[in-house]
Design a protein around this nucleic acid. Structure first.
Lengths: 195, 195
DNA sequence: GTTTTAAAAGAACGAACATTCGTTTATCTT
DNA sequence: AAGATAAACGAATGTTCGTTCTTTTAAAAC
């Protein structure tokens, strides 16, 4: 029997993400994807059940990479400031390395295609919860409702990143957020969260 | 001659926004919109040049309402803390009053359909710029790169709002962010931005 | 009340859509 | 080398898409 071509599936995934970032869900079709990937439309159905399944799988795969990169070298037992900065830097590095992936997931954020509960893996969520519990216990941060805390801890990060991502457009222009500005924003967050 | 039916155009706009919030750009079509609005598809083309024009007009109209509401009772000369809190409350009220509108604009945020520069009217942008210039001059806030400043001033707000918006889903469930939590987040932001 | 005009409807257009089907092709097993 | 099997393809399915055309309808102007 003939084996599956791993390179082929990888190409489908890459081109699909590219197309969605450039044209949105709206402009994304199986036939255009087939043409972009240089294969027949029916071949896509060997690797993915249907359009919806393809989108779902893409999202899950991208989110999994994100979760892995965000938690790199992270331990929920870390001192709060170190741990939060590590996560900021990890996410920053992820976005520099995979701007398309990041842009792609952002398309899902407010779309009806993915339920909120599907965002991030359970392991990721529980690691983050433990991290905050520790920080509160050690009185490194003020005690706050969870969503207020996360909004303060990551809101500035995401707004900053989104701004620079849009500045860079989708052409070749590089992502221009400097680590210095990132650090500046981070210092503000730390000041805000101190007890 | 027969006059245009203003009610008809209003219905088209409302139903279009509803449909986009519920099904995304992907699931939005002229024919489904016609059926939902109870008229012929060709009638839509009396009020809007085409699909793209319809989306553009919807976005501009919604954004105009937002800008008006956000600036309600606002003056760039206000003391910083008062002015920023007023804007937070204005935006909060806007989202409570028009959750669909807000959800609708969020769909555009990372989509290729609207250029970043089209976000918000020039009047809105310049009012905000003047507001910060004044605050810096009076040493009410630290001097920071513009995007770092805005990220810190509004990041927590938007993350908080997005979280509660997703919690409420799109069914009848009410938008559940309390003004108390809003105020808590605001206090953190003020603490962060002080010189 | 007739004429004028544009709104509104409905049918129709080709194009593009997601998906399936039958055939061909490439690779593994024997 | 022959046979088995699933990958890969091209063609075709029926549906839905955005938009236009033709006709009908309703209101304003006379």
């Amino acid at each position: 029997m003939r084996p599956r071509d791993e390179q082929k599936e990888a190409t489908i995934r890459e081109k699909a993400i590219e197309m969605i970032v450039q044209e949105g869900f709206d402009g994304f079709s199986m036939q255009k994807l087939a043409k972009a990937a240089g294969l027949s439309a029916s071949t896509i159905y060997i690797y993915f059940k249907n359009r919806e399944d393809l989108l779902r799988q893409l999202y899950l795969a991208v989110d999994e990479v994100f979760a892995r990169e965000a938690l790199r070298h992270f331990d929920p037992a870390m001192p709060f400031e170190d741990g939060l900065w590590l996560q900021w830097k990890n996410r920053y590095r992820y976005i520099l390395k995979h701007p398309l992936y990041f842009h792609f997931s952002e398309q899902f954020r407010n779309s009806p295609l993915i339920r909120q509960q599907d965002l991030h893996t359970p392991a990721f969520r529980s690691a983050m919860q433990q991290f905050v519990r520790n920080a509160v216990q050690r009185k490194e941060v003020a005690e706050l409702p969870a969503e207020v805390f996360w909004a303060a801890a990551y809101g500035p990060f995401y707004i900053l990143v989104q701004f620079h991502l849009q500045q860079s457009g989708m052409g070749g222009k590089p992502f221009s957020l400097s680590e210095q500005k990132l650090k500046q924003a981070f210092q503000l967050v730390i000041k805000a969260l101190r007890p």
